[in-house]
Simulated assay, not measured.
Amino acid sequence: MYDNIGPQTGVPRPPNTQPNPFGNSFYGASSGFIRGGLGAYGEKILGSSSEYVQSNISRYFSDPQYYFQVNDQYVKNKLKVVLFPFLHRGHWTRITEPVGGRLSYKPPIYDINAPDLYIPLMAFGTYVVLSGLSLGLHGKFSPEAVNWLFAKGVVGWTFQVTLLKMTLFSLGSGEAPLLDIVAYAGYTFTGLSLAILGKLFWRFTYYFMLPWTCLCMGIFLVKTMKRVLFAEVRTYDSSRHHYLLLFIALAQFPLLIWLGNISLNWLF
């Protein structure tokens, strides 16, 4: 019927409406397969990918808010552990709790062995201020000098983080969260700030307090690395383990001596 209509009538030719016995069934089956099969497969891929990303992010980069859950009692007790680690009679392992079907570490406010970033950041700022004050007493203070001391402290902190991180890698595990290592390395500036403060009052105090600070920091890191971070190491070699711990402890002496030498030179 429609084939007899010429183009002059202006009536569009309708599409071929020849029935397709497989059309509806094929469309229904294909759409069901897409919605059911591919959809479920896609959700599985996306779900596993998001879980993988979240697990790796939490493994290497923990929630920064976790490291600032502190109070006055924690700060006081933590300073005692860092400055007098040999007097710490309790255990050095962190406390876990079930959260969302998995074990998670308790925040610092509930666990003295948990790392925090409040004390390291405050100690680092104190180190820069006291170092600038020391330069001022010797007539060498300037804004450029403060910038230099800040950069020197950042370099020292970075070196400490690298030292701890490479130690874990050498033992077959680098899965400890980066912010954990940054926090442990930052405790270096607590005793260092006290040594510089003592130097401001009496010059010779510094030569007694700095070796003490190096020794205490070495003990603290050895205890921490041995009881906390090495728990995630998959391979264990006792001789290698002890040599690396000894190396970490000995490395505190040249590092803190370099940081404690308040001058505008890199080496002296």
Rank of each mutant, 00 (worst) to 15 (best):
L164W: 00
S142K: 09
M166S: 13
V146C: 08
A145M: 06
S170G: 02
F169S: 08
T167Y: 09
G139D: 09
L137H: 11
L149P: 00
A176C: 07
L149N: 01
L164Y: 02
G136N: 11
S173T: 06
A145F: 05
L133N: 01
N147M: 12
A176T: 15
K140E: 15
A176K: 08
P143T: 06
V155T: 13
W157E: 02
G153C: 07
T162S: 15
V161R: 03
M166L: 15
A176M: 12
T167S: 12
G174H: 01
K165V: 06
K165S: 13
G174N: 03
L137I: 07
S170L: 13
V161K: 00
T158Q: 06
H138A: 13
G174Y: 00
L163T: 03
G139P: 03
W148A: 05
L168R: 11
L149F: 04
E144N: 11
F159N: 01
L163I: 05
E144D: 13
S142F: 08
G172T: 05
G156A: 09
L137A: 10
V155N: 02
G172W: 04
F169Q: 07
V155A: 15
A151K: 13
M166K: 12
K165Y: 15
L135D: 06
T158I: 10
L137E: 13
L133C: 08
A145C: 08
E144P: 00
N147Q: 11
F150I: 11
T162Y: 08
W148C: 01
A151Y: 10
V146L: 15
M166R: 11
K165T: 13
W148D: 01
L133Y: 12
F150T: 14
S170Y: 11
G174L: 01
G136R: 13
T158M: 12
L163M: 13
G139K: 08
A151C: 08
G139L: 07
W148E: 04
K140P: 00
G153T: 08
L137P: 00
S170I: 05
G136Q: 12
W157M: 04
K165L: 09
G136D: 06
G153W: 04
K152N: 04
H138R: 15
F141P: 00
P143Q: 03
S170P: 00
T158V: 06
W148K: 03
V146S: 09
A176Q: 10
L133E: 03
E175T: 11
W157Y: 10
P143H: 01
F150H: 04
E175A: 11
S134K: 14
G156K: 04
F141D: 05
G174M: 02
G136M: 15
F141T: 03
S173Q: 04
F169L: 15
L163Q: 09
M166H: 02
Q160V: 02
F150N: 07
S170V: 01
L163A: 10
G172N: 04
P143M: 04
A176N: 14
P143D: 05
W157N: 03
Q160W: 01
